[in-house]
Write a protein that binds this DNA or RNA. Structure first.
Lengths: 368, 368
DNA sequence: TTGTAGGCGTTATCAA
DNA sequence: TTGATAACGCCTACAA
C-alpha cells in the first residue's frame, strides 16, 4: 500500500493532500477534477473547498505518464528567424491552444543532423504529434524505423516527404511560381532568370518546375546562365544576385524573401535598380513591403492558414482520425505592385492606380 | 511487488524490458543509461546490447516525474509574428539547446488573461523555468502567490516587472530613445513627434523618458499634440500616423518597427514622404531595411543576445545559482541611414558615403 | 457512488 | 557492484 506521508511544507499539494484534507479518497478528488463519474454534491463541495484551501493544481507530468498523452506537439522549422515561419508557427500555436495543446519549438537550420536530434528528443519527451518542415535529404533508416515504432502522427508543413508520411499541408508552389513568371513575361521581360531554393526540398523543386513551364508557355528560352540554386538564406541570394546580374537578365523571379533581400543588395552594389534595370517578383509577402520602395510584386503564401490547417490535421490524427491521407494544398496569391514595372512594360497607363489599390488592400488586410 | 509483465508488442520498450532482456535489474540498466555508478564491463555490454536490440529510449516523462525536472523552459512572448521576437526566441532556443533544454512557446498578445493562462499551464506542465516578456498590467494576487509557491525561476525579457522578480535581461531603452531623438535634433528637426509604446510596459516608458529628456537637452519644446501612445502594433502606428502628421511635425521618433510601417502607410495616404517632409527614426533593425527606401535610420537592439543571455541566466537560476539579482542591460546601436535626412539637414556632403558604409556594414553582419 | 490498489516508466535508497 | 523496492503524482479497473 501507498504511504502518502504528510505534505512537505515547501512542495505543492498533491492529489493525496487534497483527499486527506477533504476526508475522501483520491478517486473522488480525481473524479471532481476531471468532471468524470458522478460525485455527490456534498462530497464535491468538500473536495472543491480542499482544492482551494491547498491551492491544488494537478501535475500534468504525472497525468501524462498515467494517460500516455502529453497534450504537447512538437514543431520543427528550419529557422524561426526566417520571417516566413513566425506566422506559420503563430497559426499552429493558436490552433493548438484552442484544442488544449502546447507547442515545443525546435529549429533545424535545414540540417539533417539537427532535425534528427530534434525528432529523437521530441519522441523521448513523448509529444503527441509532430509538425515538421522537412530539411532536405533522407532520414537515416534508423530514425524512420523509430518513428514507425512509436507510431506518432506527423504532419508535414510546406514541404512534402512521402517516405515519411503523406499527410501534409502545403502551398501550390508550382502554380505560384508559374503565375509569377507569367506575370514577368506579360510585363514584357524576355531574359528571365531564377534564384531558386535548394532542389532537395519539395517546394523548391515545385517552384523550379513552375518557372520552367511558365517560360515555355510564354515562348521564352531558358538560359542556364540565368538559373541559380540558393538555399533560401539571404547570403545565397546575395551571391546569386552578383552572379546572375552579370548576365544581364531583364527579369528575375526569386523563390523567397530572404534571397530577394540579398539580391537587392547585390543589385545596389552593381549600380542596378529595380524595376528600371530588371523586373523582380518574389515569394512571401509582408506588411512592410507595401510601404517601401521598390514596391515588390510578390506571390503571397497563406502562412497563418498553413499553420492552422497543419495543426488541426495533426490534432485530428492524434484524436484517432484514420481517414485517408490528406495533402492539403493552399492557393497562393499574386500581389501586383511595381517591381515588375508591369504597367510600364505592358503599356498600361494606370500604374499608380493599380499599385495604390493593391498595396492599400494588402495593408488593410494586414492591419486587421 | 511490481509485475512488469511481457512487453506488449505495439508499445516501445521500457527499462523493465531491457532489464529482463539483459538479465539484470532495472537499477543496472538505469546506471548504464545515465553513466552513473560503476557497472562492471561485462554487464554493461550486455545491457547495451539489450538496449540496441529493443531500441530502447528512456521515457523522459517518467524521468521528469521521478526527477522533478523536465528540462523544459516556458517562453511567453506577446506575439511571435511581431518581427522583433523571432530572433529573441531563436537566441533563447539556441542557448537552451546547448544546455539540454527545450522551449515551450506561448503567445500572450499582451493580454493579461492569456498571459496568466499561459503561466498556469506552464507551471502545471512543470517547466523548470520561465522566460517572460511581461504584458502590461499587474498579475492577480493569486497568480503571484502561486508562482512563489512553486518557486520556479523566472527571467524577464525586454520588460521589467519588479513585483515578480528582479532578474531581467533588457536593453537600454532610455539611452536608445535618447540617442535617436538627439540624432533627429542634430539633423535639424525642430518639431519632433513621438509614437510611443503602451506606457504600461516598462520599456515603452523608458523610451518615453528618453524622448522627453532628449528634447530638453536639445532645447526643443515638447508639443503634446505631437505625442501619441500606440500599442506596438501596426494598426496603432497607422492611426497615430494620421493624427500626428496632421500637426506637421518635421521629425518623428517611433518606438518600434511595426508602428513605423503603419506610420509610413499613413504618410503615403497623406501624400507626405520621408525624409523630405519629415525625418524618421525608429527602433528595431532588420536586414531588409538596408535595401529598401526610404532607408530607415534605426536604433537596433541586440535581439539574439537578449534571448541568449536571458536563457543562460534562467538556466543558471534553475541550476541553483542564488547570486544576487541580475538585471542585465544590453546596449542599443544607432544605425544611421537616410530617413532623418541627416546629411541634408546638417549640411554635410558625405550623405552617400555615410549611408553606404553603414548599410554595407549592417548587411555584411546580417549576412554572416 | 466511493474506496482500494496497481500501473504508468523512471530514479534513488538500502541492503546484500 | 548489484538487486529489491519505495517514491514521483496521477488515473482507473475492480470491489465494496
Amino acid at each position: 500500500m501507498r504511504k502518502p506521508g504528510r505534505k512537505k511544507s515547501g512542495k505543492s499539494a498533491s492529489i493525496y493532500d487534497v483527499a486527506r484534507e477533504a476526508g475522501v479518497s483520491v478517486f473522488t478528488v480525481s473524479a471532481v477534477v476531471n468532471h468524470k463519474s458522478h460525485v455527490r454534491e456534498k462530497l464535491r463541495k468538500r473536495v472543491e473547498k480542499a482544492i482551494r484551501a491547498l491551492n491544488y493544481r494537478p501535475n500534468l507530468i504525472a497525468r501524462s505518464l498515467a494517460n500516455q498523452r502529453t497534450h504537447t506537439i512538437g514543431m520543427i522549422v528550419p529557422d524561426i528567424a526566417n520571417p516566413f515561419f513566425p506566422m506559420v508557427v503563430r497559426g499552429a500555436e493558436d490552433a493548438a491552444q484552442r484544442h488544449g495543446y502546447n507547442l515545443l519549438l525546435c529549429n533545424s537550420d535545414d540540417s539533417l543532423d539537427k532535425e534528427e536530434t530534434a525528432i529523437e528528443l521530441l519522441l523521448a519527451k513523448r509529444v503527441d504529434g509532430i509538425l515538421l518542415t522537412k530539411a532536405g535529404g533522407d532520414f537515416r533508416p534508423g530514425i524512420r524505423q523509430m518513428i514507425k515504432q512509436v507510431d506518432v502522427p506527423i504532419v508535414l508543413v510546406m514541404r512534402t516527404y512521402p517516405k515519411l508520411t503523406k499527410d501534409a499541408v502545403i502551398t501550390d508552389d508550382y502554380q505560384g511560381a508559374y503565375d509569377a513568371v507569367c506575370h514577368l513575361a506579360r510585363s514584357g521581360r524576355r531574359r528571365i532568370g531564377l534564384i531558386g531554393g535548394p532542389r532537395k526540398v519539395s517546394n523548391a523543386l515545385a517552384r523550379w518546375q513552375g518557372f520552367h513551364d511558365a517560360l515555355k508557355a510564354s515562348g521564352l528560352p531558358l538560359d542556364p546562365e540565368l538559373v541559380i540554386e540558393g538555399d533560401y538564406r539571404m547570403e545565397s541570394g546575395y551571391r546569386a544576385g552578383h552572379a546572375l546580374l552579370s548576365h544581364q537578365p531583364d527579369g528575375i523571379y526569386v523563390a523567397n524573401h530572404l534571397m530577394t533581400v540579398g539580391l537587392l543588395k547585390a543589385a545596389e552594389e552593381m549600380g542596378l535598380s529595380c524595376p528600371e534595370d530588371f523586373g523582380l517578383i518574389s515569394f512571401d509577402d509582408y506588411p512592410w513591403l507595401g510601404v517601401f520602395r521598390p514596391r515588390l510584386t510578390t506571390v503571397e503564401l497563406p502562412k497563418r492558414e498553413l499553420g492552422i490547417e497543419a495543426a488541426e490535421l495533426l490534432i485530428r490524427r492524434i484524436s484517432g482520425d484514420v481517414s485517408k491521407v490528406a495533402v492539403m494544398k493552399l492557393q497562393p496569391e499574386l500581389r501586383v505592385r511595381e517591381s515588375c514595372g508591369f504597367a510600364r512594360h505592358a503599356g498600361r497607363g494606370k500604374n499608380r492606380a493599380v499599385d495604390g489599390v493593391e498595396a492599400g488592400e494588402n495593408l488593410i488586410r494586414d492591419l486587421q
